[in-house]
Computed example of a mutant assay.
Amino acid sequence: MKKQWIAAGAAAILLLSTSAGVYAGTKLQQIKAYLDPSMKFKVDGKPFQPQNDKGAVLAPISYNGSTYLPVRAISKALGVAIEYDGKNNTVLLGEKIDGIPIADGFTGDQHTKDPQLTSYNGKDYKDVFFNNLSGNRSSSFILYPKGKYQKLYLQVAAIGKDIERFFVQDDRDDSKLKIDTIAVSEGLKTFEINISGVDELFIYADVEDGGSMFVPLTTSYYK
Rank of each mutant, 00 (worst) to 15 (best):
L117S: 00
G94C: 08
L15Y: 10
L16K: 03
S17I: 04
R137Q: 01
G79I: 06
I195W: 04
S75A: 15
I142N: 12
K87D: 09
V91L: 15
F166I: 03
Q155I: 01
E186K: 13
M39L: 11
P115R: 00
Y63I: 04
L217Y: 06
G9T: 07
S119K: 06
D199E: 14
A157L: 11
L14C: 11
K223S: 06
V215M: 07
V43E: 00
L14M: 13
P47R: 10
D98G: 00
S38L: 04
I13V: 15
L28D: 15
K189N: 04
Y63S: 12
G9F: 04
N64M: 13
Y222P: 08
Q116T: 09
N131P: 10
K54T: 15
W5A: 12
I13P: 01
P70K: 04
Q169N: 10
A8G: 15
S175E: 04
K87G: 10
P50A: 14
Q150L: 14
K151R: 15
P70T: 05
G135I: 07
G65C: 13
Q29T: 13
D171I: 02
G210Q: 03
M39K: 07
A77W: 05
V128G: 08
S212R: 01
Y221Q: 05
D114P: 00
D173T: 03
D85P: 08
E95P: 02
G99T: 00
G94W: 08
L58V: 01
D36M: 02
E83A: 15
A10Y: 03
V198R: 09
T18A: 09
I61L: 13
L143Q: 03
D209Y: 00
D85Y: 06
V128H: 07
I163E: 05
K42I: 01
D85G: 09
N131Y: 13
E192F: 02
I182R: 05
S175M: 04
T18I: 11
K223G: 01
G55H: 14
L35K: 13
I159G: 08
N194P: 05
Y153M: 12
P60N: 10
K54A: 15
S62E: 11
Y153C: 05
E95C: 01
V168A: 12
G147H: 10
S175K: 10
V22R: 14
A77F: 10
V156H: 04
G79L: 08
L28V: 14
A158R: 04
L133I: 07
T218S: 08
D162S: 10
A33Q: 07
T107F: 10
K146G: 06
G160N: 13
D114I: 01
D36I: 02
D199H: 13
G55K: 14
Y221S: 07
N131I: 11
G210V: 00
I179Q: 10
S175T: 08
N64I: 12
S138W: 07
I61D: 10
K42R: 02
D124K: 10
I163T: 02
F167S: 07
S38V: 03
I31W: 07
Q49F: 11
K178I: 02
E208A: 03
A11M: 15
I61Q: 09
V43W: 01
K113S: 00
K76M: 07
L217T: 04
V22D: 11
L152P: 05
R137D: 00
L28E: 15
A7R: 12
K27Q: 15
A20S: 13
G108I: 02
E186S: 12
I195R: 02
A157C: 12
A205I: 07
L15F: 08
